[in-house]
Write a protein that binds this DNA or RNA. Structure first.
Lengths: 217, 217
DNA sequence: GTAATTTTCGACCGCATGGCCTACATTTAG
DNA sequence: CTAAATGTAGGCCATGCGGTCGAAAATTAC
């Protein structure tokens, strides 16, 4: 059997022997779940359907995950991590506030274009947090890190004199909001928006919005 | 009984006599559905729970709606219509591109602030369109009108010389995206973003982004 | 090779759901 | 006032769900 839980809720030292098959299956199942969610919606992504997508029996999922909730949580973590890793690596290749901000926006859209399925699934999941508490928790683990990343870029840029004076937090919300809002429309209909054009528009706009007065760069 | 459907799918002439109780109940049920969805999530908003929220029997819903799907559709229509009506009325009170654009953005945020429940429900519903076709259909009926409204404002502003030269469609996507993206964060956690500040930031930004070169207004 | 362990399968269970039906209450029409 | 209609209630049912179980298969260890 897999990962046992101690009475106080922590995992035992499991996760060591034969972690290979274990983790492979988990990744496989998570992948199948993402595909199923993206194509049929979270509500229709039952264990049976996901198992069918992967080509395994339903109980295999129950065996490798503590339940549907844990699977979905893993899906969320996976979706967020993959996107964030990519964006961070792109930003770190740049120096200076403006270039780093531009890199953040462009990387966000570049990743979107290459991983449409991920974002379709993500939007489906957005609506799945029943209670306000669950929504807040998701915000804290998913959204806040992104905002703080942008905020850090903005703040450092201000210190270096690359940016004008503004409230980093507010602008960070606005930037992330603009990216996600365009993404949302694109998720609903791929043909409805031109990702590249919107990305270009946003980079120019936020460049203008962060410039120091009279800086004609 | 209510609204019968002809074999070819259209409604009979019903909807005329005693439309009062009928429509009152429908509105009441739709309202209860919105409240339930917003507080518990769409998945948990069963007919039983909605009926409980309204204080009626489950079968009353079945009587006044052709099924849960039709109810949810009515909820969507209701949410969109209410918001659009408000925004349009505000925009129409202004003249000139810049003022009308500003009115659109400000009205969007003003309506949000006063109808949080509506938007929490809306985000829940966003994820409920299983098939890509359903997503596209929603985009066509919900998103496109908004974009076209902005587009019309932008285009007319360009004709009047109020705006610089840009692609109205792309900028419209960007504007609507920015509004919705901020809204999304606010839905997840009311305290995470300052609506008023974001609104102010966006109005200034999009004003800058649309100005004719050298127009120091 | 064989015993022990891990992994998979398909059947099964309890439960909540959407929808339906019948009987009862209320309103409307004449 | 009465009969027809419109509206409501609560019980009922088939369906699909997440999850469990014991047996079978596959893998590993010795």
């Amino acid at each position: 059997m897999r990962s046992k839980i101690t009475p106080d809720g922590r995992r035992t030292s499991g996760r060591k022997k034969s972690t290979f098959i274990e983790e492979t299956r988990r990744r496989q199942i998570v992948g199948g779940a993402i595909t199923t969610i993206a194509s049929a919606g979270l509500a229709q992504a039952s264990l049976a359907r996901i198992a069918d997508e992967v080509g395994i029996s339903k109980s295999v999922i129950s065996y490798h995950f503590d339940g549907r909730d844990e699977l979905i949580e893993e899906v969320i973590v996976s979706l967020l991590a993959e996107s964030n890793r990519f964006i961070r690596s792109r930003v770190e290749q740049e120096t200076g506030g403006p270039d780093r901000l531009r890199a953040y926006i462009e990387a966000s859209f570049a990743f979107m274009a290459d991983h449409r399925e991920n974002f379709v699934a993500m939007v489906d999941i957005w609506g799945s947090f029943g209670t306000p508490e669950a929504k807040r928790a998701f915000n804290a683990t998913a959204y806040d890190p992104c905002r703080r990343h942008i905020e850090a870029i903005l703040r450092r840029g201000q210190q270096d004199g690359d940016f004008r004076d503004f409230t980093p937090r507010t602008l960070a919300s606005t930037i992330q909001g603009a990216i996600d809002g365009v993404m949302l429309q694109w998720v609903f209909d791929e043909a409805a928006v031109d990702l590249a054009e919107c990305a270009a528009e946003l980079t120019v706009m936020f460049d203008l919005a962060t410039r120091v007065a009279g800086d004609g760069r």
